[in-house]
Nucleic acid binder design. Structure first.
Lengths: 193, 193
DNA sequence: CTAAGGACTTAATCTAGTTCAAGATAATTC
DNA sequence: GAATTATCTTGAACTAGATTAAGTCCTTAG
């Protein structure tokens, strides 16, 4: 695994110097996560912020009844992890698990702090990253309250056309905020059209 | 209206120099918004990022049937506005309107760009602002899918105890993702307990 | 090859929350 | 201060989606 992808992702928003890029690369830890394995577990304090180099992971919340609620699927080029746990160093409420064999870069909490202190240029990158993510999250809140589950599923498929091929439907149902049974109904209805 | 509140809000996360503070204050525009008036309208391109100095505003989305969906209530100390419209300079999808007579500070888009270029120190402030907001939004998505409307209302009242006194219930219902009629039922049920 | 578990579907029943329609209360306006 | 308009409540009928339970189809392991 090389740093091409993650550095390219950064260069979309800022132009780091050679020195900055080199330092940034030096704090990264590579990790291979096999299908079904955890990149991070709820209850444990998150030590890393995660960049997905290849593969696919999901971040989810497990409620008191043991039911999982998917917050995000992260494919190549996405960042993920439990942001609150990472920044405040409190036990994580979310878990992140690989849906396919995946390769990720880890940014350790301490490395991140030192990076931002030494090269504040990266503040801009993360400002833009979080800002864009915030816009996406606002849209999702609106969507959940304005359109039906069927419509949400149709839009999901349009937005992530390949995901359905390797993500179990029950997790897609969870992401959409419905039960697998109801997703099944929707799929039958749509295919019969 | 003076800049004490907004500067204090910034000092919670960064320590700007006297020069930086002064420059920051110089780009701010004060605005008084009377109850019912708009700070910004959907369809128009947002020119300002908004800091609430006093009063209360709500940011909402109006769907194709003309129904409003409240995204956020913003009281003193909060930032608001249509972030996507502001950063990409595209027509806003959200509107922001005053629920009580309010005083806000406006940061013009151009002033913000120049501020961040001239004093990148502020990147850190907005990075933290967006990062925290992101955590809040993630929690809201989870909450919408895991607990009942009644539970959401109870938590809302606990989190914003004063809001109910001056925000019409129909907007609180919208924020909670339910109809005013159903909120009415919930309230009767709770008060009867 | 067979057993066992996970993923997906189907169908019946149920419920949280919506819709519609009518009244009751308050707030504004003239 | 009566009239108008908006907000809130109530109740009956309805529906999107949940729950429960059974059955099918795959994998994977022994």
């Amino acid at each position: 695994m090389n740093t091409n992808s993650i550095l390219a992702s950064i260069r979309k928003h800022i132009k780091p110097s050679a020195e900055e890029s080199e330092y940034f690369a030096s704090i990264l830890l590579p990790l291979s996560v096999k299908q079904g394995e955890f990149a991070e577990k709820s209850g444990e304090t998150t030590r890393y912020f995660i960049y997905v180099n290849s593969g696919c992971l999901m971040t989810y919340y497990t409620d008191k009844d043991g039911d999982d609620h998917v917050i995000q699927f992260s494919t190549s080029g996405w960042w993920t992890g439990d942001l609150q746990s990472f920044t405040e160093q409190v036990p994580a409420t979310y878990s992140t698990r690989a849906l396919t064999d995946s390769e990720v870069w880890l940014i350790p909490k301490m490395g991140m702090d030192q990076l931002l202190e030494k090269y504040p240029h990266f503040e801009k990158f993360f400002r833009i990253l979080f800002q864009n993510s915030l816009v996406t999250h606002q849209k999702r809140i609106i969507l959940a309250g304005t359109v039906t589950a069927e419509e949400r599923y149709i839009r999901f498929r349009k937005k992530y056309p390949t995901l359905e091929q390797y993500v179990p439907l029950k997790y897609i149902a969870s992401y959409l905020g419905i039960t697998p049974e109801f997703l099944s109904k929707i799929r039958r209805k749509i295919s019969g059209k």
